[in-house]
């Protein structure tokens, strides 16, 4: 990412409220083409609201969010919010992300080819006719990534992509997102997983109603910033060149 990279989304002085107190207060943030940003913060800190403002599914109470014209955004929600009992197969899920130019229910030959390609890319080849509940946790997460990628987005937005998944799936997701970023896709995600995910990202934003810090993990993950973000003392260790954040009650800041 260079300083001359074009801005896909510009969050400019944004505050947001759902009718009560402000959930987000005076946020300035820019999402550039090819960037990779992780948003961290405690539960109820406004992370998901910030994602929704970036996506455009919410309008800010104060301030503006400018998106590049014709920006193609794809969103991967938390797997916990998916209705796993809905009667739908893997292929049907992937297919729905690209609204058809021809108004007919069934997939065209080229659409079927595209769906097979994206399923193969995510290691889901041959599972197209399975019901979504019949997959493993990692496969379920990848189905929704496949749906997002089928849209061929400029910006991929993910809400807690590693929440509720096992270590192996988390590694798969992190590697996949890293590959997509390397291929030039801009990625924004929220996460609770500081050590497993946030420390591996090039840029993170610490949010708790306001934007507390923004920068590389090494610049941002300090005991002071983490205490302001999470409201509790936290310790930052370094092991083998990797940062490790602990919330030991014995930590001193």
């Amino acid at each position: 990412m260079t300083s001359t990279a074009r801005s896909l989304v510009e969050v400019d002085g944004v505050s947001h409220s759902y009718g009560g107190p402000l959930v987000l207060d005076h946020i300035h943030l820019s999402v550039e083409a090819g960037s990779f940003l992780g948003v961290i913060g405690p539960s109820g800190s406004g992370k998901t609201t910030l994602l929704r403002l970036i996506l455009g599914s919410l309008s800010p109470t104060i301030g503006t969010v400018n998106r590049e014209p014709n920006l193609r955004v794809a969103y991967v929600p938390q797997v916990e919010t998916v209705n796993w009992n809905f009667p739908i197969t893997v292929s049907e899920v992937v297919l729905m992300s690209r609204p058809p130019s021809i108004r007919r229910p069934w997939a065209t030959e080229s659409e079927r080819r595209d769906v097979s390609e994206v399923l193969e890319q995510l290691g889901l080849a041959g599972l197209g006719d399975r019901h979504i509940r019949e997959l493993s946790g990692g496969q379920q997460q990848r189905v929704f990534l496949a749906r997002a990628l089928h849209r061929k987005p400029d910006l991929l937005v993910l809400d807690e992509p590693t929440s509720g998944v096992d270590v192996r799936t988390r590694h798969e997701v992190v590697h996949l997102l890293t590959d997509l970023h390397r291929d030039g896709m801009a990625v924004v995600l929220t996460t609770h997983d500081i050590n497993g995910l946030a420390t591996h990202l090039p840029r993170i934003a610490c949010v708790n109603r306001e934007l507390i810090a923004l920068g590389s993990p090494r610049d941002v993950l300090t005991p002071q910033v983490l205490e302001r973000t999470y409201g509790a003392p936290m310790e930052v260790l370094e092991h083998g060149g990797l940062l490790l954040v602990t919330d030991s009650p014995l930590a001193t800041s």
Partner: peptide, 23 residues
């Protein structure tokens, strides 16, 4: 239902994502 099949399905299965995907 024929003309709006995919949009109706997306809006029924996952309204939030449908909304940001142009439905």
């Amino acid at each position: 239902i024929y003309a709006c099949y995919r949009h109706l399905l997306f809006a029924t299965f996952d309204p939030e994502v449908a909304n940001v995907s142009g439905v």
